[in-house]
Amino acid sequence: MADDDAPSDSSLLVIVVDTNPNQRYITEDPKLLTGCLDAMIAFANSHLMQKSSNLLAVIGCHFHKSEFLYPSPGKPLDVRQIDGQYELFTLVEKTIKMRLVNLIKSQPQDDKPGESLLAGALAMGLCFISRMRREAAPGIRMSSRILIVTGSSDTAAQYINYMNVFFTAQKQQVLIDVCSLDKHLSLLQQGCDITGGLYLKVPSLEGLLQYLLWVFLPDASERGQLVLPGRGRVDYRAACFCHRELLTIGYVCSVCLSVFCKFSPICTTCHTVFKTGGPLPIKPKKKKMKV
Protein backbone atom coordinates (compact mmCIF):
# COMPACT_ATOMS: atom_id res chain seq x y z
CA MET A 1 0.00 0.00 0.00
CA ALA A 2 2.80 2.36 0.88
CA ASP A 3 5.16 3.85 -1.66
CA ASP A 4 6.88 0.71 -2.79
CA ASP A 5 9.50 1.90 -5.24
CA ALA A 6 10.93 5.05 -3.73
CA PRO A 7 13.06 4.39 -0.66
CA SER A 8 12.08 6.78 2.07
CA ASP A 9 14.39 9.18 3.84
CA SER A 10 13.29 8.08 7.24
CA SER A 11 11.12 5.42 8.62
CA LEU A 12 8.90 5.65 11.66
CA LEU A 13 8.11 2.52 13.61
CA VAL A 14 5.44 2.43 16.28
CA ILE A 15 5.49 -0.68 18.42
CA VAL A 16 2.37 -1.53 20.36
CA VAL A 17 3.29 -3.99 23.06
CA ASP A 18 0.62 -5.82 24.97
CA THR A 19 1.47 -5.88 28.67
CA ASN A 20 -1.81 -7.27 29.92
CA PRO A 21 -1.10 -9.65 32.84
CA ASN A 22 -3.74 -12.14 31.78
CA GLN A 23 -1.95 -13.21 28.61
CA ARG A 24 -1.41 -16.94 28.77
CA TYR A 25 2.38 -16.92 28.45
CA ILE A 26 2.67 -14.51 31.36
CA THR A 27 0.31 -16.35 33.67
CA GLU A 28 2.22 -19.56 33.04
CA ASP A 29 5.69 -18.09 33.62
CA PRO A 30 5.89 -14.40 34.59
CA LYS A 31 9.63 -14.33 33.91
CA LEU A 32 8.99 -14.78 30.20
CA LEU A 33 7.73 -11.21 30.03
CA THR A 34 11.22 -9.88 30.82
CA GLY A 35 12.69 -11.98 28.03
CA CYS A 36 10.09 -10.84 25.53
CA LEU A 37 10.54 -7.25 26.60
CA ASP A 38 14.31 -7.44 26.16
CA ALA A 39 13.83 -8.91 22.71
CA MET A 40 11.40 -6.15 21.87
CA ILE A 41 13.79 -3.43 23.05
CA ALA A 42 16.69 -4.95 21.11
CA PHE A 43 14.46 -5.01 18.05
CA ALA A 44 13.46 -1.38 18.58
CA ASN A 45 17.12 -0.40 18.83
CA SER A 46 17.99 -2.33 15.68
CA HIS A 47 15.37 -0.26 13.90
CA LEU A 48 17.05 2.92 15.12
CA MET A 49 20.40 1.46 14.08
CA GLN A 50 19.35 1.12 10.44
CA LYS A 51 19.46 4.83 9.66
CA SER A 52 20.25 7.86 11.73
CA SER A 53 16.98 9.45 10.63
CA ASN A 54 14.78 6.57 11.74
CA LEU A 55 12.21 7.27 14.42
CA LEU A 56 10.67 5.11 17.08
CA ALA A 57 7.68 5.12 19.38
CA VAL A 58 6.61 2.41 21.79
CA ILE A 59 3.11 2.21 23.25
CA GLY A 60 2.34 -0.01 26.18
CA CYS A 61 -1.15 -1.43 26.09
CA HIS A 62 -2.71 -2.52 29.34
CA PHE A 63 -6.24 -3.50 30.27
CA HIS A 64 -7.10 -0.18 31.90
CA LYS A 65 -5.25 2.23 29.62
CA SER A 66 -2.59 2.59 26.95
CA GLU A 67 0.43 4.80 27.39
CA PHE A 68 3.49 5.92 25.47
CA LEU A 69 6.56 4.16 26.83
CA TYR A 70 8.92 5.94 24.44
CA PRO A 71 9.42 8.82 23.74
CA SER A 72 8.46 9.98 27.19
CA PRO A 73 6.47 13.18 27.30
CA GLY A 74 8.39 16.17 28.55
CA LYS A 75 12.13 16.27 29.00
CA PRO A 76 13.99 13.03 28.15
CA LEU A 77 15.86 11.26 30.93
CA ASP A 78 19.41 12.32 31.54
CA VAL A 79 21.31 9.17 30.72
CA ARG A 80 25.04 8.64 30.97
CA GLN A 81 26.70 5.68 29.41
CA ILE A 82 27.38 2.79 31.71
CA ASP A 83 28.89 0.44 29.17
CA GLY A 84 29.78 0.36 25.48
CA GLN A 85 26.19 0.74 24.33
CA TYR A 86 25.24 3.67 22.09
CA GLU A 87 23.80 6.40 24.29
CA LEU A 88 20.51 6.66 22.42
CA PHE A 89 19.93 2.92 22.80
CA THR A 90 20.56 3.13 26.52
CA LEU A 91 18.07 5.97 26.69
CA VAL A 92 15.44 3.91 24.85
CA GLU A 93 15.96 0.93 27.12
CA LYS A 94 15.90 2.93 30.34
CA THR A 95 12.86 4.98 29.35
CA ILE A 96 10.80 1.98 28.30
CA LYS A 97 11.58 0.01 31.44
CA MET A 98 10.94 2.90 33.77
CA ARG A 99 7.66 3.90 32.21
CA LEU A 100 6.47 0.32 31.97
CA VAL A 101 6.96 -0.09 35.71
CA ASN A 102 4.85 3.04 36.24
CA LEU A 103 2.18 1.73 33.92
CA ILE A 104 1.94 -1.61 35.68
CA LYS A 105 1.95 0.02 39.11
CA SER A 106 -0.93 2.28 38.11
CA GLN A 107 -3.24 -0.62 37.33
CA PRO A 108 -6.30 -0.80 39.58
CA GLN A 109 -5.72 -3.51 42.14
CA ASP A 110 -9.26 -4.65 42.82
CA ASP A 111 -10.37 -5.01 39.19
CA LYS A 112 -10.06 -8.30 37.43
CA PRO A 113 -7.84 -7.82 34.37
CA GLY A 114 -10.01 -7.47 31.30
CA GLU A 115 -9.21 -7.34 27.65
CA SER A 116 -6.21 -5.38 26.30
CA LEU A 117 -7.17 -2.11 24.69
CA LEU A 118 -5.33 -2.80 21.45
CA ALA A 119 -7.61 -0.78 19.17
CA GLY A 120 -7.13 2.29 21.36
CA ALA A 121 -3.38 1.87 21.36
CA LEU A 122 -3.44 1.54 17.58
CA ALA A 123 -5.40 4.77 17.31
CA MET A 124 -2.79 6.48 19.51
CA GLY A 125 -0.12 5.16 17.21
CA LEU A 126 -1.90 6.55 14.17
CA CYS A 127 -2.24 9.93 15.82
CA PHE A 128 1.46 9.94 16.64
CA ILE A 129 2.33 9.06 13.05
CA SER A 130 0.21 11.82 11.63
CA ARG A 131 1.73 14.31 14.05
CA MET A 132 5.23 13.26 13.04
CA ARG A 133 4.30 13.66 9.39
CA ARG A 134 3.00 17.12 10.00
CA GLU A 135 6.08 18.17 11.92
CA ALA A 136 8.60 16.69 9.49
CA ALA A 137 10.68 19.16 7.52
CA PRO A 138 9.34 19.85 4.03
CA GLY A 139 10.58 17.52 1.33
CA ILE A 140 11.16 14.55 3.59
CA ARG A 141 9.62 11.22 2.68
CA MET A 142 8.66 9.25 5.71
CA SER A 143 7.32 5.74 5.68
CA SER A 144 5.50 4.58 8.77
CA ARG A 145 4.39 1.29 10.17
CA ILE A 146 2.90 -0.12 13.33
CA LEU A 147 3.95 -3.41 14.86
CA ILE A 148 1.67 -5.13 17.36
CA VAL A 149 3.30 -7.64 19.70
CA THR A 150 0.62 -9.43 21.65
CA GLY A 151 -0.16 -12.70 23.36
CA SER A 152 -3.83 -11.99 23.98
CA SER A 153 -6.48 -14.08 22.34
CA ASP A 154 -8.83 -12.91 19.66
CA THR A 155 -12.03 -11.20 20.74
CA ALA A 156 -14.60 -9.54 18.61
CA ALA A 157 -15.62 -7.04 21.30
CA GLN A 158 -13.53 -4.27 19.71
CA TYR A 159 -14.49 -5.29 16.17
CA ILE A 160 -15.79 -1.89 15.09
CA ASN A 161 -12.89 0.00 16.63
CA TYR A 162 -10.46 -2.36 14.91
CA MET A 163 -12.06 -1.86 11.53
CA ASN A 164 -12.04 1.91 11.94
CA VAL A 165 -8.36 1.82 12.77
CA PHE A 166 -7.49 -0.55 9.93
CA PHE A 167 -9.18 1.50 7.27
CA THR A 168 -7.72 4.74 8.62
CA ALA A 169 -4.29 3.15 8.47
CA GLN A 170 -4.94 2.01 4.94
CA LYS A 171 -5.91 5.52 3.95
CA GLN A 172 -2.86 6.99 5.68
CA GLN A 173 -0.60 4.42 4.02
CA VAL A 174 0.51 3.01 7.33
CA LEU A 175 1.43 -0.67 7.41
CA ILE A 176 0.17 -2.75 10.31
CA ASP A 177 2.29 -5.76 11.24
CA VAL A 178 1.20 -8.28 13.81
CA CYS A 179 3.42 -10.60 15.78
CA SER A 180 1.27 -13.00 17.75
CA LEU A 181 2.97 -14.74 20.66
CA ASP A 182 0.26 -17.22 21.53
CA LYS A 183 -2.85 -17.83 19.47
CA HIS A 184 -3.92 -17.25 15.93
CA LEU A 185 -5.58 -13.83 15.65
CA SER A 186 -7.94 -13.68 12.74
CA LEU A 187 -9.15 -10.12 13.33
CA LEU A 188 -5.70 -8.60 13.45
CA GLN A 189 -4.70 -10.70 10.49
CA GLN A 190 -7.44 -8.97 8.53
CA GLY A 191 -5.82 -5.67 9.50
CA CYS A 192 -2.45 -6.82 8.13
CA ASP A 193 -4.10 -7.87 4.92
CA ILE A 194 -6.00 -4.61 4.54
CA THR A 195 -2.95 -2.41 5.12
CA GLY A 196 -0.41 -4.65 3.36
CA GLY A 197 1.51 -5.59 6.49
CA LEU A 198 2.82 -8.94 7.62
CA TYR A 199 1.26 -11.38 10.06
CA LEU A 200 3.32 -13.91 11.97
CA LYS A 201 2.41 -16.28 14.74
CA VAL A 202 5.65 -17.04 16.53
CA PRO A 203 6.11 -20.80 16.88
CA SER A 204 8.27 -20.53 20.02
CA LEU A 205 9.05 -17.66 22.34
CA GLU A 206 12.75 -18.53 22.72
CA GLY A 207 13.76 -17.13 19.35
CA LEU A 208 11.48 -14.09 19.51
CA LEU A 209 14.25 -11.59 18.73
CA GLN A 210 15.30 -13.53 15.65
CA TYR A 211 11.72 -13.72 14.39
CA LEU A 212 11.30 -9.99 14.90
CA LEU A 213 14.59 -9.12 13.19
CA TRP A 214 14.03 -11.43 10.25
CA VAL A 215 10.45 -10.64 9.45
CA PHE A 216 9.59 -7.22 10.80
CA LEU A 217 12.82 -5.22 10.55
CA PRO A 218 12.78 -4.60 6.77
CA ASP A 219 11.16 -1.36 5.72
CA ALA A 220 8.17 -1.32 3.36
CA SER A 221 10.46 -0.55 0.42
CA GLU A 222 12.88 -3.33 1.35
CA ARG A 223 10.27 -6.01 1.84
CA GLY A 224 9.85 -6.57 -1.88
CA GLN A 225 13.50 -7.52 -2.17
CA LEU A 226 13.59 -10.09 0.59
CA VAL A 227 11.90 -13.44 0.79
CA LEU A 228 9.41 -13.17 3.65
CA PRO A 229 6.53 -15.34 4.85
CA GLY A 230 3.50 -15.14 2.60
CA ARG A 231 0.07 -13.84 3.39
CA GLY A 232 -1.70 -17.18 3.54
CA ARG A 233 -5.45 -17.37 3.74
CA VAL A 234 -7.21 -14.67 5.66
CA ASP A 235 -10.38 -15.30 7.58
CA TYR A 236 -12.60 -12.41 6.59
CA ARG A 237 -15.61 -13.15 8.76
CA ALA A 238 -17.25 -10.11 10.24
CA ALA A 239 -18.46 -9.82 13.80
CA CYS A 240 -22.09 -8.96 14.37
CA PHE A 241 -22.83 -5.65 16.07
CA CYS A 242 -25.26 -7.10 18.57
CA HIS A 243 -23.36 -10.00 20.17
CA ARG A 244 -19.82 -9.54 18.73
CA GLU A 245 -19.75 -13.00 17.27
CA LEU A 246 -18.08 -13.96 14.03
CA LEU A 247 -20.58 -14.73 11.30
CA THR A 248 -20.58 -16.28 7.90
CA ILE A 249 -24.16 -15.28 7.03
CA GLY A 250 -26.09 -12.52 8.72
CA TYR A 251 -28.34 -9.51 8.25
CA VAL A 252 -26.91 -6.24 6.92
CA CYS A 253 -28.55 -2.85 7.37
CA SER A 254 -29.14 -1.43 3.94
CA VAL A 255 -28.40 2.11 5.11
CA CYS A 256 -25.28 1.91 7.30
CA LEU A 257 -24.08 -1.63 6.49
CA SER A 258 -24.09 -2.77 10.12
CA VAL A 259 -24.05 -6.54 10.53
CA PHE A 260 -26.50 -8.42 12.78
CA CYS A 261 -26.81 -12.07 13.58
CA LYS A 262 -30.53 -11.79 14.29
CA PHE A 263 -33.13 -9.72 12.61
CA SER A 264 -34.26 -6.60 14.42
CA PRO A 265 -36.85 -4.15 13.08
CA ILE A 266 -34.77 -1.09 13.99
CA CYS A 267 -31.07 -0.79 13.18
CA THR A 268 -29.25 -0.11 16.48
CA THR A 269 -26.51 1.88 14.76
CA CYS A 270 -28.41 4.33 12.57
CA HIS A 271 -31.95 3.84 13.91
CA THR A 272 -33.43 3.10 10.54
CA VAL A 273 -36.83 1.48 10.72
CA PHE A 274 -37.20 -1.40 8.31
CA LYS A 275 -40.58 -1.46 6.73
CA THR A 276 -40.73 -5.11 5.83
CA GLY A 277 -40.75 -6.77 9.21
CA GLY A 278 -39.69 -10.33 9.63
CA PRO A 279 -38.24 -12.61 7.03
CA LEU A 280 -39.14 -11.61 3.54
CA PRO A 281 -42.68 -12.68 2.80
CA ILE A 282 -43.03 -14.94 -0.16
CA LYS A 283 -44.66 -12.88 -2.80
CA PRO A 284 -47.89 -14.36 -3.94
CA LYS A 285 -47.65 -15.22 -7.57
CA LYS A 286 -49.60 -12.94 -9.75
CA LYS A 287 -52.42 -14.67 -11.35
CA LYS A 288 -52.31 -14.55 -15.04
CA MET A 289 -55.12 -12.61 -16.54
CA LYS A 290 -57.12 -14.58 -18.85
CA VAL A 291 -57.49 -13.06 -22.21
Partner: peptide, 14 residues
Protein backbone atom coordinates in the same frame (compact mmCIF):
# COMPACT_ATOMS: atom_id res chain seq x y z
CA UNK B 1 28.23 -4.11 22.26
CA UNK B 2 26.90 -0.98 20.57
CA UNK B 3 23.45 -2.47 20.14
CA UNK B 4 22.91 -4.44 23.31
CA UNK B 5 25.43 -3.07 25.79
CA UNK B 6 28.40 -4.57 27.58
CA UNK B 7 32.05 -3.75 27.21
CA UNK B 8 33.70 -0.54 28.35
CA UNK B 9 32.03 2.86 28.14
CA UNK B 10 33.21 5.29 25.49
CA UNK B 11 36.01 7.56 26.55
CA UNK B 12 34.00 10.75 26.99
CA UNK B 13 31.10 9.57 29.08
CA UNK B 14 32.33 9.90 32.63
Amino acid sequence: VALLGGGRPWSMSS
